[in-house]
Each structure stands twice: as C-alpha cells, then as structure tokens.
Simulated assay, not measured.
Amino acid sequence: MPLWLAAAAILSLLIPLALLSAPPAPSADRLVLGEVRLLWGRGEQNTDPDLLHHRERWHCVLREAGPAGSNGGALRVLSSADGRVWQSSALLRLPGEDLRRPSLCAAPDGRLLLAAEAHSTALPGPPPRTFLWSSADGRDWEGPVQPLEAGLLLGPIRWHLNRAYSLAFDAWNKEPLRLYSSPDGLKYTVHAPDLALSGRRTQPVVLFFRRDGLAVAAVSSAQTRLGEARAPYRAWSWRPLEPGAQPLAMAELADGRILAVAIPAGGAQSLALGWLDPSAAEWTPSLSLPWKGAQNGAALVVRDGTLFMAYGSEHEGRSMIYWAEIS
C-alpha cells in the first residue's frame, strides 16, 4: 500500500476518536463560579449587602448588628480598589433605631446615595421610616433626610435618564404599591399612584431598568410577581413568576440577557443564579452558591464581562458577607 494511503487510513481512524474525546463546546447559558471569599464578617451579624462600582472603586453597604434577636442595627460602608482588600469607610447609626435593608446607588452628578429602613427599638414606637444619606466620597455622609412620610418604605433606588425611581409600600399593607420618582434622589413624589398589584407585599422588592428602557420589577407576596412597564412607567402588567422563586437582585448582560439571583421555590436552603425571561415570566436556575440561612440579601454588578456578587450567608456558622465572581 502506498505510504500516503496508509497515512490517510490512520487519520480516518484517529479523527473520530479525537472528536469523541474533545471537551464539549461551552454553552452560552453556562455559568462558571470562580472564586468565593469572605468580604466582611467583623460584626456579630452581617447581612443585607448592596454593591456598587463607581469612579474606579468598589463600594459595599451592609447591615451590621449584635447577636441574633438584638435590635439597633447600623450601616457599615466599605470600599475597595480591587474587590479583594476592603476598608471600612463609615459606620452610620441612628439612636433608638434599627437600620435595615440598605441600598446604594450613584446619582448622575457623582454623589453616592444610601437608603435604609429605620425601625424603632422602643415599644410602642413611631412607624417605620425610610432615611437617606448622601456622600461625595463614601466616607463623609450628609443626612439623614426622610424622603417620605412615616410608614412608607422605599425600596432600592434605581436611576434612569437622570431620574431616580423607587417602589414603595406602606408598612401595614393598607395602601397600594406605588412608584415614586425624584430629580435629585432625595425628594420624592408619587409617579404612579397604583401599580395594580393586589395582596400583601413583603421585602425584598427589586426594581431594574433594562438598557432599552423597559422597567422590570419583582415583588414578593404569597407568590412572587414579575412586573413590566414602558415609559412613562405608569401602566404596569404583572404575572406570577415561574417557578415561584424569590429574586433578590437582577443584572443585564451586554447581549441583553438578564441574570437574577434568587431563593428557589419551596423554601429550599439554597441560593442560585439563573436566567430571567421577563417576556415569559420565567426564571431558570443555572448555578448554586454556597449558602445557608434566611433572607440575608444579595447584589449583582456586571463589569468587563464578569458578574460580581455580594451576598449574605450563614454557611460558615454565622451571618457574614461573601464575594463571588462568575463568568
């Protein structure tokens, strides 16, 4: 047999074997968990983180409190140049108040805005309130100011086209869910007086603006409901989110797909990242994270093609804040 025919015969046998042994092509929907590490755990309880990348620095705010069951939570503000080494920038307290569910955002003029619920530690005490602080650098904070009357609680503040928006509901679930807006992030007025969502609402409340301007919201009740609205964001449509997960945060990728971190349906002791399809009101889990506990909060930031996440968990014995990188 000529040498070239023998070589061809050998290649015809080797090529199928190589194809069989080759690793599968990566799926565009596959999430890969990189490093997970402790971000902060110096308080006895460390929960409810929010995460922001602003002016080449990372900023994280969280609730820091004493032993489980104690009142008097404070807000710890952290900053980092690289997401690895974190320094405490500020510790915000209000005498007689338990500060909960902080959220962080950047205004178009560069100010950092921090919002949190304040619950009185006295019984009986005043109704729960929302307070806001502002800062130019994350270290020195002005405030607090109270943007709404007592009993009304603002959710996380999100900016779109130089205007701040927030979903708000009353602490007793007697008033309808409303959308508020503000030109400066500090003074709010009713933007949509009734979002036509019946039933009792509970935290967390998630509000998110896609790059095309579509507003997406997730509100927890007996069943999590997903809402959508186009500008001017006064007419909302709501549907049950399948399969009943409870989203904690959302982020949009460069290709327009949406990732949401959520607690799966059924109260399972797990936390997962998954793909959210607002048009179908479906969430498909894709990646589980090391997690244990109740609703300890989570936040997502997409930067340079990588998803960064801060979340609270008790899987190492007590409530602490963890940093995860996902590609």
Rank of each mutant, 00 (worst) to 15 (best):
T202H: 12
L113N: 02
D304V: 05
K174E: 15
N46I: 08
V77A: 10
E175A: 15
G256L: 09
R100M: 11
R139F: 12
Y188R: 02
P240H: 09
A164I: 04
P124C: 00
W236K: 04
Q295L: 13
T224E: 03
F208Y: 11
A81P: 10
T189G: 14
E149L: 11
S279M: 11
Q223D: 13
A65C: 03
A251Y: 00
R200S: 13
G138E: 07
A22I: 05
S79R: 15
A118T: 07
S288G: 11
K187N: 14
L17M: 15
R93H: 10
L13S: 12
L75N: 01
Y165E: 01
L91T: 14
L3W: 12
R234S: 11
S79M: 12
L14H: 10
S182M: 04
L248Y: 13
A235N: 05
L75V: 12
G317S: 01
A81H: 12
R211I: 04
A115H: 11
R163D: 02
L33R: 06
D194Q: 03
D255I: 04
R211C: 02
S270V: 12
C60N: 02
G72P: 00
R63W: 06
D98W: 05
P126D: 11
G317A: 01
R178M: 12
R163M: 06
R210I: 00
W283D: 01
Y165I: 00
W238I: 06
P156G: 01
A245Y: 02
L152M: 14
R84Q: 13
P102C: 10
S220H: 10
S237D: 08
P95H: 07
T284Y: 03
G244L: 12
R303M: 08
R37A: 15
I15W: 14
A310W: 09
G43H: 03
L19Q: 13
A281H: 03
K187T: 14
R200C: 08
A294Q: 14
Q269I: 08
D184N: 12
L91A: 08
A192G: 00
G274N: 03
R100G: 01
A229Y: 05
W86T: 01
V190C: 07
W172L: 14
W291P: 06
S270D: 14
D140I: 13
R257T: 10
P243N: 07
D140A: 15
G213K: 06
E117Q: 11
T202P: 01
R178V: 06
L154M: 09
S88D: 13
S80P: 09
G138H: 02
Y311F: 15
L186V: 09
L91E: 14
Q87E: 14
P124K: 00
R76A: 15
L17R: 15
G274Y: 05
A299M: 03
A74P: 01
R57I: 04
G256N: 05
